[in-house]
């Protein structure tokens, strides 16, 4: 820690922050191993693992065959027997192939074996739309896994959180699912050096206001923040909560904000119906914060259809900044 260059460095991208977290974790704990399709020599479908294969070799950066079910099963078994595997899916959509291992094994074993084992596996899921990858490579399925007791599910929206939540996940004794929005990989931000952990289950209040509460996840937190800047110029001041973790959910941060603002809007990319917004809305409706509501709750979520390939249609089926602006104005100015 000597000299200016040690203390000051440029911003890192979200993908670089994840790679740095993996590197730090592998360096300090040899139980940490990486698994996934094309994560070794090729460096990962989104170049997240990069050159870690060169640094740690094929024993610790393991290319798995094209079988999500098999790969996930190996990672879970390795976790039960003492390793700390980080398993990368090429696309979160392919979790569907590995659901048996994730839902019926990883999430259940500690419970069913009376605590005799735990499954400290981390699974990384490149997620979301906006890359022109069409219906089978663009979904936001975090709510599927958020429905399963025994899993933890996080959605970092900044490079700093991508690193801190991954380091927390690796330390966690239970399976942690990390959803990384593909459009975020190239976004840059300040990332603290060295090892640090961002607690799982704590939301981040990104902006403080009094007119309404916006609870958003992943890339929608960024879009909401940007919309909130514009809203502020129009005299509408939003509390913007980046949920970061959907299981467990940071109930108190959401409720405290709703008690203050009396107006709640949820913004998320997953399909709106039976999604994260439904959970947040119900949580508020079931709590004392209900008594502070001044207007109906608003949810902005993905449309009830597969993600289209056509880029214009693709944009139209998930909330965009103008949608957030309009919905917030309608909510605050008493049009609903």
């Amino acid at each position: 820690m000597s000299g200016r260059s040690e203390r000051v460095r440029g911003k890192l991208s979200y993908a670089e922050a994840i790679r740095e977290a993996l590197d730090i974790a592998m360096d300090r704990d040899e139980r940490v191993v990486l698994m996934g399709e094309d994560i070794g020599v090729y460096g990962g479908a989104f170049q997240v693992t990069g050159d870690l294969f060169g640094k740690y070799g094929p024993e610790r950066v393991i290319d798995t065959p094209i079988s999500e079910l098999g790969g996930a099963g190996v990672a879970i078994g390795a976790a039960m027997t003492g390793l700390r595997p980080v398993f990368e899916f090429q696309f979160s959509d392919f979790a569907a192939l590995a659901m048996e291992q994730i839902v019926n094994q990883a999430a259940k074993l500690r419970y069913m074996l009376g605590g005799a084992v735990s499954v400290p596996v981390v699974m990384r899921f490149p997620a979301g739309s906006g890359t022109g990858a069409a219906a089978q490579h663009s979904q936001s399925i975090e709510a599927w896994l958020g429905h399963v007791p025994g899993l933890k599910v996080v959605q970092p929206s900044t490079p700093e959180d991508a690193k801190g939540l991954l380091l927390s996940a690796i330390e966690d004794p239970d399976p942690v699912m990390i959803f990384e929005h593909k459009l975020l990989y190239k976004t840059k931000g300040h990332v603290p050096r060295g090892h640090y952990e961002t607690p799982i289950g704590e939301a981040a209040l990104r902006r403080i206001g009094h007119s309404l509460t916006i609870v958003a996840t992943s890339i929608m937190a960024r879009k909401s923040l940007s919309a909130a800047e514009e809203l502020a110029r129009q005299g509408i001041h939003a509390d913007v909560i980046d949920l970061r973790s959907i299981r467990p959910i940071d109930r108190e941060t959401v409720l405290a904000s709703v008690r203050k603002t009396g107006r709640l809007m949820c913004v998320y990319e997953g399909v709106k119906t039976l999604g994260i917004g439904a959970e947040i809305s119900a949580m508020v409706a079931e709590s004392d914060a209900f008594d502070f509501l001044e207007a109906p709750i608003v949810r902005l979520g993905g449309a009830e259809c597969p993600i289209p390939y056509n880029p214009e249609l693709e944009k139209s089926v998930v909330p965009q900044e103008p949608d957030i602006l309009e919905a917030a104005r309608n909510l605050v100015q008493g049009r609903i």
């Binding site: 009396g262 008594d291 502070f292 509501l293």
Partner: peptide
């Protein structure tokens, strides 16, 4: 109604209020 058919979450703009009930926000009621 929250619908699964893709419609926006419009609050019904139809008439409301069961006899003797009033539209009021939860905060107003408390």
């Amino acid at each position: 109604e929250a619908t699964a058919d893709g419609s926006r979450n419009n609050i019904s703009s139809g008439p409301d209020n069961i006899s003797g009930k009033f539209r009021a926000s939860p905060l107003a009621r408390s």
